[in-house]
Design a protein around this nucleic acid. Structure first.
Length: 378
DNA sequence: AACTGTTTTCCTGGTT
DNA sequence: AAACCAGGAAAACAGT
């Protein structure tokens, strides 16, 4: 069996369509204005900001995070399925892609049995569960909106402006809805604890071994290919008259010596930044094997498809894209290429001497060979 | 908490 | 000169 499924890859690359190098902003929901009334209760929008699903699909998924599954488009459904396919390294070579082309209403009509028939016992069950959870989450969202509105009106009442309400809903919510949030990371949330995570044991109930995210296909089996990161939103942790602390992301790697931005040096709480998602080489591979999803940007091309030799056509654009994926706007080809050079030692890439911007996949990279992909590039 | 793996950042020096 | 390439060093951060 091929190590990575075609569907998975197609959908991974569908993500590319969302990355517009030329455009100013990555496709992410605009953070809602922090409540200036100093209420740290997350606004409903914050609450539901699923800015990071565990894999590369995050940008896409952010588009439909607060939608009722009933109103999902076909694309949304596809993305949702891909999340589970990729997250589990599900081998979808046996899965008919046509199964995945349906809109939200159609999806919601399916029974559990139908899903199992279409996607198999494991994935089908998982999709069914996820669907139920997302529906529940949507309902919760609606409830929260009401609560949010209520609280805002409530807080407008002057005599109540010094009331402090702490962790009102936390217990109920974490008990009842933990599974709902399981796959999501809520940025802009104050972490419950220093490290920003809840203990896993608290909510192992719903998914159990089902969501065992393993990646047998990647050379780095220990990698965080599909790592999940989540924390609970503190649904009603209200601090009236308390400044909402801005958490600055410190950024990875060695701190820039001559950073233009002094905030770069400010210490911050360990940011729960984006899970790694795919590795760089996989990201590159995916651009190559699905050029049709690059918005006609011709970012890279195969020099020798069979041998796995490829070339960067727009090195900085690719770097920007990679940066967007890693939420790092200062990514450059210079830095990206350093990471690429580290792959030589691990034989994920082989050296190609004397040819600028040309690299070659090595024996420890997978998913690019013609036979593997089922695609036939030039 | 220590350790490992994978980048990210910076840098010096070389090549095209 | 600009854009790359090579790698060392150090740091950040996630996962174990």
């Amino acid at each position: 069996m091929s190590s990575a499924s075609e569907l998975c890859r197609i959908l991974t690359n569908a993500n590319m369509t969302m990355y517009q190098t030329g455009s100013s902003e990555p496709l992410q929901p605009q953070p809602l204005e922090p409540s200036l009334t100093t209420v740290s209760l997350p606004a409903t929008g914050d609450l539901l900001q699923l800015s990071d699903l565990s894999t590369c699909s995050s940008s896409i998924l952010a588009q439909w995070y607060d939608q009722n599954p009933q109103s999902w488009s076909k694309q949304n459904v596809l993305e949702w399925i891909s999340f589970y396919v990729e997250g589990n390294k599900f081998d979808a070579s046996t899965l008919s892609i046509s199964c995945c082309f349906m809109d939200g209403p159609t999806l919601c009509q399916l029974t559990r049995e139908q899903l199992l028939n279409m996607f198999g016992m494991s994935l089908g069950a998982q999709l069914y569960q996820s669907l139920m959870e997302l529906k529940a989450k949507y309902d919760l969202n609606e409830t929260c909106k009401l609560l949010d509105n209520f609280l805002h009106e409530f807080l407008d009442f002057p005599l109540l402006s010094t009331v402090e309400v702490n962790e009102v809903v936390k217990e109920t919510s974490s008990n009842d809805f933990s599974h709902v949030f399981k796959n999501f990371n809520f940025e802009n949330m104050k972490p419950l604890s220093d490290h920003g995570y809840e203990s896993d044991s608290m909510h192992s109930s719903s998914s159990g071994g089902m969501l065992s995210f393993q990646n047998p296909s990647s050379p780095e089996s220990r990698s965080s290919e599909s790592d999940q990161e989540f924390s609970y939103p503190q649904i009603a942790k209200v601090h009236i008259k308390t400044e909402r602390g801005e958490m600055m992301k410190r950024g990875r790697g060695r701190p820039p010596k001559h950073s233009q931005d002094p905030r770069h040096y400010q210490t911050s709480k360990k940011s729960k930044h984006a899970p790694r998602g795919t590795h760089l080489w996989e990201f590159i591979r995916d651009i190559l094997i699905h050029p049709e999803l690059n918005q006609n940007q011709a970012l890279m091309k195969w020099e020798d498809r069979r041998e796995g030799v490829f070339k960067f056509l727009k090195s900085e654009a690719v770097a920007q894209l990679w940066g967007q994926k890693k939420k790092n706007s200062s990514m450059t080809y210079e830095k990206l290429s350093r990471a690429m050079r580290y792959y030589y030692k691990r034989e994920i890439l082989d050296r190609v001497d004397g040819r600028r911007l040309v690299y070659k996949f090595g024996k420890n990279s997978t998913g690019w060979k013609v036979e593997e992909t089922g695609l036939h590039g030039k």
